[in-house]
Design a protein around this nucleic acid. Structure first.
Lengths: 222, 222
DNA sequence: TATACTTAGTGTATTATTAACACTATACAC
DNA sequence: GTGTATAGTGTTAATAATACACTAAGTATA
């Protein structure tokens, strides 16, 4: 049975992959090898395959570009501005993924040169990818406030300073150390371990871990 | 130039139209006239037209089913479960719209019988529309907490009791009258007018209006 | 026209959360 | 052993959230 009498738009999936490095939030971009936008930096992405869910496509892309699989991923938004793709009508279902720096494995580093870029010094990007990245950052910032997503950017063991630096990198502002720690004590998202982080040419720091590494929402209601 | 070598999925747009009536939150459903799911209730929607933005499609659908144009609308999520459409691979970009009951005009009430249903007594619905409605309600509830969207469900002039009833209908819980009013005084979203609401067989109530009827976010940060 | 009914409108005390703020402790580098 | 850099820690004040009950004023009705 015919679904329709007109031409379906093309459907792509693009993935905004965030990580935190050098106290900065970074996004993975690859240099395009083909037209359009050949040699321009772009979000990893591609056409949705037949019989493939958009989420599956997002994981496929993530796996092939960053070498990781089991990470936080959620659908972001579907972008369909008219002029966004010079090839014609193509809508993009965007996802965003959060991965701890330690987990990244560039499988074939020569191919398509994937690189993490600081959001402060983004290069010129293909399509409407700058919009997509901005939207993803906004979503991430607001998710920090009412969920425990931060776990997905940190390694198994981390210090309270690492945790605070992650917040500061994403929110783009400094926070008070004592208030930050008090807040986290209240939230009960993390617990101290018996491990200690030595070797950073200052007083060693206690290592913490997340009580749970599953997505969850924090209380808070009108 | 060929965009792809495989078949593009079908793309539909479905709209969750919420309104508040009889102290209850309601969603607009229409009875399907064609297969699949003939004679089953469904969200108003349809295939995305060529050269049409998904948002334009959402407004087109809204206008044709509820007779209103200038209302709150935002993209919700893109649904693409495999078995969601028996016709084959069809993904749906869902939007949700909020309209004050007063604004609704059923242009041709006989055709496709659009009806507002209470969320508590939904009939069996077509496709994955129950999921879409549940997701929209979740989104609406959380938007109440950090935005001023509530304006889009109320008429120009309203009493504080109307406002509170709207919150209670959406959040599904009773709230304290004095605390509710104190909160709104603090938020400065509304202001009293010189109008008074007479005629409801009790003490008449002061009428308020929104300071602004544009989407805005309330403060609140980590 | 008096009385009952119904919702409008209002304040205070308690508790919880947020915000501002500065010094001592300890491993590592030199 | 001395300097350096970050770890770690409490108190106070301001703001926000919560719990809670009575009087005011139209409308209905007897």
């Amino acid at each position: 049975m015919a679904i329709k009498t007109y031409k379906n738009p093309g459907v792509t999936v693009d993935v905004v992959i965030f990580t935190i490095g050098s106290n900065d939030i970074k996004v993975l971009l690859i240099k395009r090898e083909n037209a359009p936008f050949k040699d321009t930096w772009a979000l990893p992405g591609g056409f949705l395959r037949e019989e493939e869910l958009t989420k599956e496509a997002a994981f496929r892309i993530l796996k092939s570009k960053a070498g990781v699989g089991n990470v936080y991923m959620e659908q972001l938004y579907t972008f369909d501005k008219k002029e966004r793709d010079p090839r014609g009508r193509v809508i993009s279902v965007a996802y965003f993924a959060l991965i701890p720096t330690e987990a990244i494995k560039f499988e074939n580093p020569s191919a398509q040169s994937p690189l993490f870029w600081s959001l402060k010094t983004l290069p010129k990007t293909a399509f409407d990818h700058k919009d997509i990245i901005a939207y993803a950052l906004k979503r991430l910032r607001s998710k920090l406030e009412y969920t425990n997503v931060i776990y997905s950017l940190l390694p198994r063991y981390f210090t309270l300073s690492h945790l605070q630096e992650a917040y500061e990198a994403i929110l783009g502002k400094k926070m008070d150390k004592r208030n930050f720690r008090k807040k986290f004590e209240l939230l009960r998202l993390i617990r101290p371990t018996r491990r200690v982080f030595y070797g950073a040419r200052q007083r060693p720091a206690k290592l913490y871990e997340f009580v749970s590494r599953k997505p969850a929402e924090l209380k808070k209601f009108f």
